[in-house]
Computed example of a mutant assay.
Amino acid sequence: MNRIHAVILDWAGTTVDFGSFAPTQIFIEAFKGVFDIEITLAQARVPMGLGKWQHIEALGKLPEVDTLWKAKFGRSMNSDDIDAIYAAFMPLQIAKVVDFAVPIDGVVDTIAALRQQKIKIGSCSGYPRAVMEKLVPAAAAQGYQPDNWVASDDISAGARPGPWMALKNVIELGIGSVFACVKVDDAVPGIEEGRNAGMWSVGLALSGNEFGKTWEEYQEMPKHEIETLKQRAADKLYAAGAHYVIDTLADLPIVIESINARLAKGERP
């Protein structure tokens, strides 16, 4: 096991949906539609990477959202409120996720290159299974299809930042050692997931939640603004425990070369 045998990839912001907009926009709509509470895109992004019920719970605990909730209802958000928002979120997300299934630039070629190295492709997401059952075939139709996928509600022990989804991939892919795996994610809980699973964790500073721009917005941004946002994203991902931070998945093969060299020397994550 002196080389990488599998990569475990996140979905939104990592392999599809540049900027990770599919889930964030739906959270905004669900909060507004159910309780007439207006949250911002920046607020919706804060807990990104968690399971979606847990994401709503975390949003309710943000001080600014809690203040709005108390002003409107005289109390903090409770589990019944979370259930109501989640019930509104799910059909909206199922209906719209296929619109965000386009692989991020470079993903399809990178997956092909990894497979040439006999590296297996696992994946997991904060999306529940009902959403993934729409997203997976839509992405496959456009060229991206992992060897395995795990949804947040497939795991009774809970989702990120716990290691369970990543470890389920290890089992289902038949990988002998967790240190021969790389977990790639654009959000803090996903980086923590990889570390908790004993894997090498790689963060994405450009394509995902922490950068938070659409592909079109990114193309029009001045270079200095891009570098500022990338550095801010990288700092956050490194603080979460990332071993490496790169721009997009297209940069992953170079990182795997580096990790393979470290494994050959006996290093471990």
Rank of each mutant, 00 (worst) to 15 (best):
A113F: 04
V98M: 10
D109P: 03
V108C: 14
D105N: 12
L114I: 08
A112W: 00
D99I: 11
V98E: 11
L114V: 05
I111D: 00
Q116N: 10
V102L: 12
P103S: 05
K96S: 15
F100Q: 01
D105C: 03
I104A: 00
V102Q: 15
K96D: 13
A95C: 02
V97C: 08
V108H: 07
I94T: 12
K96R: 15
A95Q: 13
V97G: 00
V102F: 09
T110R: 07
F100L: 06
I104L: 00
P91Q: 07
K96N: 12
M90V: 14
A87S: 09
I94C: 14
V102P: 06
V107H: 02
D105H: 14
K96P: 10
I104E: 01
L92M: 15
A95S: 10
A88S: 13
A95H: 09
A112M: 07
T110A: 05
I94N: 08
I111F: 10
V102M: 11
A113V: 08
V97K: 01
A113M: 11
V98I: 13
V108R: 08
A113I: 05
A87G: 02
A112Q: 08
V107R: 03
D99N: 13
A87N: 05
I111A: 14
A88Y: 07
A87K: 12
V102K: 11
Q93C: 07
P91T: 02
I94V: 15
L92S: 12
V97D: 05
P91C: 04
A87C: 05
P91W: 01
V107M: 05
Q116R: 12
F89S: 07
F89W: 13
A101R: 05
F89Q: 09
M90W: 06
V102E: 11
I94A: 12
D105Q: 15
F100C: 07
D109A: 12
T110I: 02
V107S: 06
V97F: 04
V108L: 09
I111Y: 02
Q116F: 10
A87D: 15
P103R: 04
V102W: 12
D105F: 04
M90I: 14
R115M: 06
A112H: 10
Q93N: 13
F100I: 00
Q116I: 15
D109M: 04
I111M: 11
V98K: 08
F100E: 00
